[in-house]
Design a protein around this nucleic acid. Structure first.
Lengths: 333, 333
DNA sequence: TTGAAAGCGCTAACAC
DNA sequence: GTGTTAGCGCTTTCAA
């Protein structure tokens, strides 16, 4: 199983009886260089005959661009948000012949340094951060080094830079109206603890609930850990003053609500109504199906790719792009 | 935002007052070249001072290896099996300083040709196929061209080549014993239609069920489509002779079983016992929790990477490596 | 122990 | 219209 010698443009040139430059001109359709049709054809024939396949590597080296970008998240790769977005990014990039040079790195100690090393070592052309919580200093490093990058997340970080986000929180009033219509008076929010920056979900919940004139509500937070989530929700549902409607800040909180309710003998949607913020592959599969405000993850990926490509080509790009979410009704509400 | 000129080994050489060759010797720890300690130190200092970061690209070009491999699946990227495995592949490869040059391509028309083009264009060093159904001719193309590759899947294809698989079907007898112990006499299998090759699941089910002396069982297949799955399972559970225990060929079939049972007023695990083959992020989150034979997906990825690296270094590698699955008990059985 | 120089495969400025 | 040539950043043979 020895290494084959791969065909180079020199081979094609020899075969076609032209120079290497001509091969390059033909294959790249260079604007201001006119090639005689028969020469062009000779090159094309040679390419086909030899089954020539230009080396991206060499090309990238010459042009000082690799046509590949890094994608980064601080979650598990198996996180649904990330995977779905990645799919969009991939499709978006491939339209411009860009490639993903995947990284899924947790935020390590010297993350910024590693980021730049990776960027340099692989001659990346840019970065997409999908559901990664960026520190201020990371922004600084990227900007200082003139690295094109785009952030994809649920909501804007407000730190400048280019971001693709969604308007899912604007569906809260609509969601509340639905809860009310279905008879839930006492509402509660359960969701993850705020992490690095102001999480707009609790505030949005408060505003929405007050808009509907309810005073008797609660916002409950806990770390993103199954046991603690279960615990918190059990306490909530066992309390004498338990809510009739629950909005979960993430799908996982929603699933735990469903599961806990069943264990306590509460019927959903009979005794309790539930809706969740965010997208999951399981919303239609769980029992009962989960009503949710779903994020346009795939589109966010595609759009992120578009923006990054624009940036890499030194075009001016809009700072924050907001894509519409959608309230999807299922059995839980 | 103009392109910075990146530091090259030439810059380091100049800074350290040595030649470019010496920089290379030092950084690569070349065996049979002795460098004076002070020279070495000078180089190292210059590297640190300039924050030099060698170009993988240029190195790959010179060595005719890119230190990167392609990873391929025929599923959606958002497939849990694939992503979890990918995580393992990534970690495995990075131990050898290999990089993933991700592709997730559906089996298109001229898949083989594209595969080789991609291989050549990006100077890949090898391929890993994770949950991709390979045609015979793809095997042929890869072998003819001397491309190192490894297949990761649930069960061996039996087509030769190097494969990393798991023994999950060997847990069926154990699973049946459990069903019997919990009181399920009538068993049934529900799962996806066989696709490109012999799916060992139905046969393994039959053998296992017969081992336990039950004659009255059924194997039910349908396309991997939510509506059809629901339909099939509804019919099964409504039949007068309905099974008391169901083994689902994939997690999705398991979730639909749970959901359908609930809708028909059947209690799990009271009226019906359920277990599924395969891994999912929702097994612990669904209601009730799903007992399942879980695949060592991450480890399969790591092992696949190990095998491929061996192959790329022209070592002899074992043909088929089987990793142990694990029966994880939850509430559904 | 170190350096000079060639060359991996490509592109592009310039020459003809 | 097409060819010559230099050079992207690296490794490695050969010479010193």
């Amino acid at each position: 199983m020895k290494k084959k010698n791969r065909i180079s443009s020199k081979d094609v040139a020899r075969e076609a009886g032209v120079s290497q430059a001509t091969v390059s001109y033909v294959l790249n359709n260079v604007e201001h260089v006119k090639i005689r049709p028969e020469t062009r054809q000779a090159v094309l024939d040679a390419v086909k005959k030899l089954n020539y396949c230009p080396s991206h590597i060499a090309r990238g080296m010459k042009l000082n661009r690799s046509m590949s970008v890094g994608v980064i998240t601080d979650r598990s790769v198996t996180n649904y948000n990330f995977m779905k977005t990645l799919e969009g990014i991939k499709d978006g990039l491939s339209r411009y012949n860009y490639t993903i040079n995947l990284i899924f790195s947790k935020q390590e100690e010297n993350f910024d340094a590693e980021l730049m090393d990776y960027y340099n070592a692989n001659r990346l052309d840019g970065f997409i951060f999908a559901f990664a919580m960026l520190e201020d200093r990371t922004h600084d490093v990227l900007r200082t080094n003139g690295v094109p990058y785009v952030i994809i997340d649920s909501y804007a970080s407000g730190r400048g830079g280019h971001e693709v986000v969604t308007d899912h929180l604007s569906h809260l009033p609509e969601l509340f109206a639905l809860f009310k219509k279905k008879g839930a008076e006492k509402m509660a929010y359960v969701g993850p603890q705020v992490r690095h920056r102001a999480d707009p979900r609790p505030l949005a919940f408060k505003e929405a609930v007050e808009l509907y004139g309810q005073q008797d509500y609660g916002c409950h937070f806990c770390p993103f850990n199954d046991d603690q989530i279960r615990n918190m929700i059990q306490n909530l549902l066992r309390s004498p003053n338990r809510p009739e409607g629950i909005i979960a800040g993430t799908p996982r909180f929603g699933f735990h609500t469903l599961k806990t309710a069943a264990e306590l003998g509460l019927k959903v949607p009979g005794d309790l109504l539930v809706a969740s913020l965010g997208t999951s592959a399981f919303h239609g599969l769980c029992n009962p199906g989960m009503t949710a405000v779903e994020l346009p993850l795939y589109d966010m990926g595609v759009t992120g790719a578009d923006v990054l490509v624009g940036l890499m080509n030194e075009k001016h790009m809009e700072g924050i792009i907001t894509l519409p979410s959608e309230l999807v009704l299922r059995e839980s509400l």
